[in-house]
Design a protein around this nucleic acid. Structure first.
Lengths: 197, 197
DNA sequence: ACGCGGTCGTACCGACCGGTATGATAAACA
DNA sequence: TGTTTATCATACCGGTCGGTACGACCGCGT
């Protein structure tokens, strides 16, 4: 059931971690949001760390799978789909996203240096993202929308880095226009990968 | 004097914040590193937040000024200087930098959403960086090393975002090659701004 | 009717943190 | 020399945190 106490805890924990970071996230606050208590929490999760890792796997990863990874994999024209996804993100940009940035990137920056398990799990999501992007570029090549001489793997990595970087800038500037400006350059970069007309 | 207790506190605080983030930084640990006590600390700084802001202004900003901003401003051929700075950073890359990433970016990601003062100060450094980069691109244009049709301001912003993004990826992957790979693409992007030969 | 395992609430602990109050010391100045 | 002022040490406080112990409840099989 999706209305159980465990999913409720995961969702509230995601919110709290998204707003404060994992280390600063307060279990008490999560329990206040859900109306539950520590007994319920420690029945489903052995410790705070386990809760955080579950958030990574079952919330962060799942959201990216459904909103980006699978749409990109199932698209017949992946390059157009990629630009469309970015466009959607820009149109649906709310204050919350501008204020707090990318959930995955936040956790990566905070947890990678101090917890190997977090680092591995987050790195797996990053690798998956990179592979999805690289595959999109490859089919873009056979569809002659991407030049044949571009290295799809390293380009995918760079696009990923630039994407997260744009989020980081916007998070400080606290303005959607700054994010748009930054992302427009990323789109221009992808356009520059097209064959010379 | 540069050997006083205040600079010693600032340096130790920078290390601690760099390794754990500001919120998780322990004043006790800083004092243990310096051999000082809380009396000394709270004589020079009114609270933990003031110490953190001083670290931003007097350590983080100053390091960037001396290693990147001023060298880029004083260079006769800024584009070559930019590529050289990146090359130096790659050659002198130590495990510490790979493990903990870019100090400025770390603070931006952690503090921007939760403290307006931090956000403003960090944003000022970011703006300065952007302007230095934009100016470098502009003189690159008059030296005919950058195409005349590129928007220097937005391009500078994008380069900045990509640069920080590369650090973020490397921080998770924990490998210098990943950073090199990522940064190579950034260099390739800058090369793509050159006039058609 | 009874027991039992899963589920969750309540009360509480020990540890750690940022911050404060106060005292000791030494330099600076009269 | 006497006094003030800057500098730093020591001891301690209030508060919050993650985590634990234990009890209540409830469905379910027998």
């Amino acid at each position: 059931m999706t209305h159980g106490t465990r999913p409720k805890l995961l969702e509230a924990a995601f919110r709290e971690v998204y707003e404060r970071g994992f280390q600063a996230a307060s279990l008490t606050e999560i329990l206040r949001d859900t109306g539950l208590t520590k007994g319920a929490l420690y029945h489903h999760f052995s410790c705070k760390r386990a809760l955080g890792l579950a958030v990574v796997e079952e919330v962060v990863r799942e959201r990216l799978e459904s909103t980006i990874f699978r749409p990109l994999e199932e698209a017949e024209r992946p390059i157009a789909a990629l630009l469309k996804i970015w466009g959607d993100k820009l149109r649906l940009l709310d204050d919350d996203a501008i204020e707090h940035g990318c959930p995955l990137n936040n956790l990566i920056q905070e947890m990678s240096p101090i917890d190997p398990e977090f680092r591995t799990r987050l790195g797996a999501i990053l690798t998956r993202w990179q592979e999805v992007l690289a595959q999109a570029l490859r089919t873009g090549q056979v569809q002659q929308e991407i030049r044949a001489d571009v290295n799809c793997d390293t380009t995918a990595l760079f696009i990923l880095a630039a994407w997260e970087g744009c989020w980081g800038i916007a998070k400080n500037q606290q303005s959607a226009p700054a994010f748009r400006q930054c992302l427009a350059q990323l789109q221009a970069y992808v356009e520059s990968l097209r064959p010379r007309s």
